[in-house]
């Protein structure tokens, strides 16, 4: 036992961990299913602002609204995520324009339309990774993934 080399010990530990702490089947399935989020033919709207990344230290307690903004050439998607009761997203396209907005989450997608000012909302949003696909008259945009 004491003449095992470090490498031998690590190899045994690797086998032990694989057996005792395997990647759960649900997690594996989720990883495989992630493929369905492969880029659709759309412009990527990059995350340009996330209030959640501002308050790394210091701010304690629970702020109620998180603000997130994405930018693609020609359009910006600004949203607010609130979680009093269920999670809710309210957002707006800038400049104002009408579009269909799809919220994609691993648990399923929700579809809505904007009003004439480009405003939209989603209720009962599950926590976890999400992104939005914006289909307007002359733009199709997909936002970066955010975890909400």
């Amino acid at each position: 036992m004491s003449d095992w080399t470090d490498d031998q010990i690590l190899a045994m530990l690797r086998r032990a961990l694989e057996a005792a702490d395997p990647v759960p089947e649900t997690a594996r399935r989720a990883a495989r299913a992630a493929f369905t989020w492969r880029s659709i033919d759309a412009e990527l709207a990059k995350l340009v602002y996330d209030s959640a990344e501002e308050d790394v230290a210091g701010v304690r307690g629970t702020e109620t609204a998180r603000q997130v903004a994405f930018r693609a050439p020609g359009v910006e998607v600004e949203v607010m995520v609130t979680h009093s009761g269920g999670r809710r997203i309210v957002g707006q396209l800038v400049p104002p324009q009408t579009a269909r907005i799809e919220l994609q989450t691993p648990e399923g997608n929700q579809l809505t339309g904007t009003d004439t000012l480009g405003r939209f909302s989603f209720d009962d949003v599950p926590s976890g990774p999400a992104r939005m696909v914006v289909r307007g008259d002359d733009v199709v945009v997909v936002t970066e993934i955010v975890v909400i």
């Binding site: 990883a31 989020w37 976890g128 990774p129 993934i145």
Partner: peptide, 21 residues
């Protein structure tokens, strides 16, 4: 907890899909 661990694990793969190319 298991739920958060699952979310984090899944998000990593979604990000890879996003950046694949």
């Amino acid at each position: 907890d298991d739920g958060t661990r699952h979310d984090v694990f899944q998000t990593v793969w979604l990000r890879l899909v996003e950046h694949c190319g």
